[in-house]
Write a protein that binds this DNA or RNA. Structure first.
Length: 182
DNA sequence: CATATGATGGACT
DNA sequence: GTCCATCATATGG
């Protein structure tokens, strides 16, 4: 078994695209109140930016933009169509950037996780986590087991957005059965 | 307080 | 691929 390393602040304080790519293959750990520990591999992510990104909710002023401007490593949760979506804020303080978690591969549990709204339900993530810091959070964090180097990354345009950027900002693990959409 | 708005999911063609 | 139920949130008065 490869060494399990917990991801720190430096990892998140970089460009959203870079973080979105490198998050693939890593393990998201969620400790529930009842003691159960859910583990899932991150298989699909999307990068979002600020004012210059027409698909980002941070292109308009408000709490979403302010949260995305915080330092890398913050958790951002917001609701749409009665689903909670979880993001990790990336970049330095002042940069409006974040990475959306779109799909997970469950490792030790059996719930639907093929989609951003489904995975938050499976992991019991809600607005309580908004603005928390993932670096030293006991209830949720990310582990690197070193499997990332064996992964082949596919690039696609983002899903469900009206206007996208010129460059694909959605990334997923090739051949994963748990990707939300090919 | 009123109301517009989806970074969705699931059902259906 | 298209349609749409549904509801927390953001924003403005």
């Amino acid at each position: 078994m490869a060494e399990m390393k917990r991801i720190g602040r430096e990892f998140f304080e970089r460009d959203a695209e870079q973080v979105a790519r490198e998050l693939l293959g890593m393990i998201l750990v969620r400790k529930l109140k009842d003691g159960r520990e859910l583990r899932a591999r991150i298989v699909e992510t999307e990068a979002y930016f600020g004012e210059e990104d027409p698909a980002s909710r941070a292109c308009k002023k408000g709490d979403l933009r302010e949260t995305m401007k915080l330092e890398g490593g913050r958790i951002l949760v917001y609701g749409v169509h009665n689903n909670w979506l979880i993001n990790f804020v990336t970049g330095k303080k002042g940069d409006a950037e974040a990475v959306l978690l779109r799909a997970l591969e469950p490792l030790n549990f059996q719930e639907k996780t093929k989609g951003p709204g489904l995975l938050t339900r499976a992991l019991e993530i809600d607005k309580m986590f908004h603005k928390k810091i993932i670096i030293d959070c006991e209830e949720i964090f990310v582990l690197d087991d070193g499997s990332q180097k064996e992964i082949e990354v596919i690039e696609r345009f983002r899903i469900g957005v009206k206007r996208d950027l010129k460059k694909p900002m959605r990334f997923y693990i090739k051949d994963s059965k748990y990707v939300s959409k090919k």
